[in-house]
Amino acid sequence: MGAYVNKDAKKLQPSFVSANLLTDTLPENNHTPFQKNNSDIPEEIRNRTFQDVSLCYQCGKCSAGCPVRYYMDIAPNKIVRLIQLGFYDEALKSSTPWICAGCLTCSVRCPKEFNLAGFMDAVREIAVKKKVKVKEKDILKFHKAFLNQIKRYGRLYEIGLVGEYKMKTLDLLSDVETAPGLFLKGKLGLLPDKVKDRKSIKKIFKKTDKKKINKH
């Protein structure tokens, strides 16, 4: 590469602009595709889904059939494209993986048999691991509250879940019309239904806890 660099380039620049400033501020520099392919992200997606993102040829059938497409900020096929191009930040901070309901419509219809729903799982997982500021943070809070119930009881304790989620989000007023109804109908048990061998559940959680694994 060195042979082609104009050694006098610096001299040719206007004197009031430093070389660094010029290159740093050019937006194109952040938009050169396929530059960050040495990142661990494509590898992680491959490990998680057993498929390479290069499979996707961007036909858009996934987005076309996605039932929650209208609630996403970026079309699902474009998330794959961003990952293909190496624009990871843009993909990870999108609301799309969080809005994805995992209904598998895309995976079933994909002409390349790319499991897009599995891919979205992987993207979410990476976003959590990389501590990306998630757009749909309430959804993440819900998942955390849900898993906390499982960790504690081995089964879902619905009242516990709703309670914990509401404490996390301070969204205390919604669902007032359904919850009392559920009580009245005698559907929600007041006490959690517990697994006896909760030790095994705790062990699973401990062994798969990402934070603890990372510390090792």
Binding site: Q58, C59, G60, S63, A64, G65, A75, N77, T105, P111
Partner: peptide, 19 residues
Amino acid sequence: RVSRIYEEKGKYIVKGEDT
């Protein structure tokens, strides 16, 4: 690509995405 076609009131609803 079109993801789905279904019939509704004599029309064919074609669901697609302009990528």
